[in-house]
Amino acid sequence: MTESTWMRRVLIGIALAFLGLVLIVPLGTVFGGALEKGFANAFHEVQDPITGAAILLTLKMAAVVVPLNLIFGISAAWSIAKFDFFGKKILMTLIDLPFTVSPVVSGLIFVLLFGAQGLLGPWLAAHDIQVIFAIPGIIIATLFVTFPYVARELIPIMQAQGNDQEEAAVTMGANGWQTFYHVTLPNIRWGLIYGVILLNARAMGEFGAVSVVSGHVRGLTNTIPLHVEILYNEYNLVGAFCVASILAFLAIGTLIAKVLVKKQGEL
């Protein structure tokens, strides 16, 4: 390197200052705000039954969304990486759609589709199925917003590995499932875990799309991020910061898990 020492220090300084301003300070504020009235009070806030319902709903929603998007992600990555078919380019573009569409807009799409005045509204009403302002709507919106994560993580890995090992397995007599389980899955496992971690974090933290479809029914259709907003709007700042801390912990946990998985995958 030809840069002088002071130049290097300035650059590192800028990076650290920026990081502090947009990351450390807000995180500190969240935890600081939560603990403003002491640990006991923070604990009490989190134990509020409505908060508990929000946490439970978020976990339930993730328990449905993560497996579904895992299956979708593996199928999409497998078909894109291993086969040539008509419409492959379109499928690849569509997978990225949730990245480019604003979450609020995607929420609105589902309201227009499943809402009382929506395209499928009358049919759903006739069959007594409620999607919008209910849990199914939250799940569908979250599914949409998070569906690129696993596929995007796996496609480059699968493309780089090619088909050789799978072909070797089938010539030795392995059927499709045996080939997937014994050959493909071990080769993609770290990428898969990495994708699932990102998927889970995004699913639990999603605000925009879920906000539009949930209807904010307290104790029923409120996820953690929505609950934070309600508490904040009601001037319960300590409560809002306490619940936000849960999401912050989730984010930090995700970050640590990501680093660990990446390290494993490189071994």
């Binding site: 090992q165 070797a168 397995a169 010539t171 014994h182």
Partner: peptide
């Protein structure tokens, strides 16, 4: 392919 009873060796080994 599974029923053809062939052994196939690839250029880049394709070991697991």
């Amino acid at each position: 392919v599974q029923e053809r009873k062939v052994g196939f060796v690839f250029q880049h080994y394709a070991l697991f």
